[in-house]
């Protein structure tokens, strides 16, 4: 019974699990990013920057898996345009579209780090702050569309992941950032 059920829903379960992981890692990454740019004392430093980068890349990988696992699901019948273009799928809208827009935002704004020299550091910094907006869209998508959204364990997990980041973001917005300092590892 278990094998049959898991076998039938393999891609569906994979997508949901990847979505949960993407939310957790993206939240941790945003928290690390806010900590780098804000006034949070000892948390700053090159190690935190590396952690932020690694968490972001892991979150993006989970995000890609979350979307593309649906291609293999025999019930969902998703196509590539369904997963990449907002409002094409017409399933649980507007939360699906919000998720797609948030996903694109995270992907483009996150990967823009590697083109920051070309973009210009100041312009890139201003752009990169919008990653927090993409993360908020991801949270809305999770709560509005997530299959597990009604379950206590999932709500507890979401609150545990989102609340600290929301507080950090609020503190970051309400306080002026510390002047940039270069630390020796």
């Amino acid at each position: 019974m278990l094998a049959t059920s898991v076998g039938t829903h393999f891609f569906w379960i994979t997508s949901r699990a990847a979505g949960v992981v993407a939310l957790l890692l993206a939240s941790a990454s945003v928290a690390a990013g806010v900590a780098i740019s804000g006034r949070f004392g000892r948390l700053r430093g090159p190690d935190l920057r590396v952690t932020h980068e690694a968490l972001s890349l892991a979150a993006l990988a989970a995000l890609v898996l979350h979307a593309f696992a649906l291609l293999g699901d025999s019930f969902f019948h998703a196509t590539i345009p369904d997963l990449l273009i907002p409002f094409v799928m017409n399933y649980k809208e507007p939360y699906m579209a919000i998720g797609i827009i948030g996903g694109w935002g995270m992907l483009l704004l996150g990967l823009s780090y590697y083109a920051r020299e070309r973009i210009g550091i100041n312009r890139w910094k201003a752009l990169h702050r919008l990653t927090a907006v993409a993360w908020i869209l991801g949270v809305i998508h999770t709560l509005g569309e997530g299959t597990d959204a009604g379950q206590p364990w999932f709500l507890a997990l979401t609150v545990a992941a989102v609340a600290p980041v929301a507080l950090l973001l609020a503190a970051r917005i309400l306080t002026t950032p510390a002047p940039a300092t270069r630390e020796i590892p």
Binding site: H9, I13, R16, A17, A18, V20, V21, L25, A62, W153
Partner: peptide, 10 residues
Amino acid sequence: LFLAAWASIG
């Protein structure tokens, strides 16, 4: 995290 989430949901 992925394995734990997969096992829980599955």
